[in-house]
Design a protein around this nucleic acid. Structure first.
Lengths: 196, 196
DNA sequence: TCCCCAAAACTAATACCATTAGTTTTAATA
DNA sequence: TATTAAAACTAATGGTATTAGTTTTGGGGA
């Protein structure tokens, strides 16, 4: 059932990740990847469905890795502490794996089933963390969208060199999350006031 | 001093914008652009410095356009109203010009002088709006980073189909900005309390 | 009015790239 | 040890950007 052992998908994804993190996702070509793996480009088609297929698998691979680090960051924590930790983990991932992080957002058609599922796991984890703030249902979904926007926006802008001013970026992350959490609390309070 | 009139840069940028908005920035190639302009690709080199040069000019073009719409949105407004309006304008721009919006963030080297200047204008405008919240100096810069992260993150995730759940996106924007503003106020209040 | 010339467009050629088709190699299994 | 299916290969095609060198052209100076 296995008449020959050559490359395997994981080896390919790791090599692609190295290229992406070192030189950017656009430098991940079948040509550069084949060279790194000491193979001719057409050989890669035995394992992946062309460049688009590689990018999709890389997106899922990155999302799974990000999710695992997110889960570790949230483990044993709750409330504001948990939010700060997953935020730090998210930003750290984008810094450690700039190219792979790019890949997670570059899904050819983001509607792909595997990408959806991997992304859904992250949304579920975020929803779980926000339960500590008495957020459920639609308000929770809006809040998760807010948190994701903050994290992706910050990671993306930092990566593209969008923050030019010489001011500590980690401080910014902490303050932005603090502001987000303070806002959640304030709005909750406001709701309770009117509910009386 | 002008022995022949052919294409001009603005015509090229408009055509590139149309392709980008209709089919995505990656479909803006010298080949596709030349075809749209009824010209052979090498002719474009008389006006732009290759594909990287085109992308840079497109980034600046997009930033200027976004800035102009931002300025219009902020005109005559202040405080929370102004923040909500520039947020809506930002998201609207990303929706109207998805490809051009992509281009603004895809600066080859974001450290380019023209890109920096165009981006700086937007930061200055945001700083001006936040002055209404008694924010200046470093806290203001952190706050602008937060606002930019929210807006870019939301626009980017929406564009890539990252928000899968069937829940009104405009409501999300409004709530996220409300949360951001409530957070700014809450932290301000907190500072004042401790300052006593 | 006509000529000039520089800018703009062109053709031709090169070097990448992804992808497909068809062939050869190879190693686990039977 | 022979089989065989997977995996790697070579060859070929068509798309891309880019450079070099040539031709076209139209506004300004004679």
């Amino acid at each position: 059932m296995s008449p020959r052992i050559g490359l395997d998908l994981n080896t390919i994804l790791k090599a692609a990740t190295e290229i992406a993190d070192a030189h950017g996702i656009e430098e991940v070509t079948l040509a550069s990847l084949a060279k790194k793996l000491n193979v001719r480009s057409p050989s890669l088609y035995n394992h992946i469905d062309g460049l688009p297929g590689l990018r999709k698998k890389l997106a899922v691979y990155g999302l799974e890795l990000l999710y695992s680090q997110w889960k570790r960051a949230a483990a044993g924590r709750s409330g504001e502490d948990a939010v700060h930790e997953i935020a730090k983990a998210y930003i750290a991932f984008a810094r450690t794996h700039p190219g792979l992080y790019e890949a997670t957002l570059l899904a050819p058609d983001s509607w792909d089933h595997d990408v959806q599922r991997a992304g859904g796991k992250m949304v579920d984890l975020a929803l779980g963390v926000l339960k500590d703030f008495e957020l459920e249902g639609e308000p929770a979904i809006h809040a998760v969208r807010g948190l994701r926007s903050i994290l992706h926006g910050f990671a993306s802008l930092e990566q593209k060199g969008g923050f030019g001013l010489p001011l500590d970026l980690d401080v910014s992350v902490r303050l932005i999350i603090d502001t987000f959490l303070a806002g959640i609390h304030a709005i909750k309070q406001n709701e309770k006031k009117y509910a009386k």
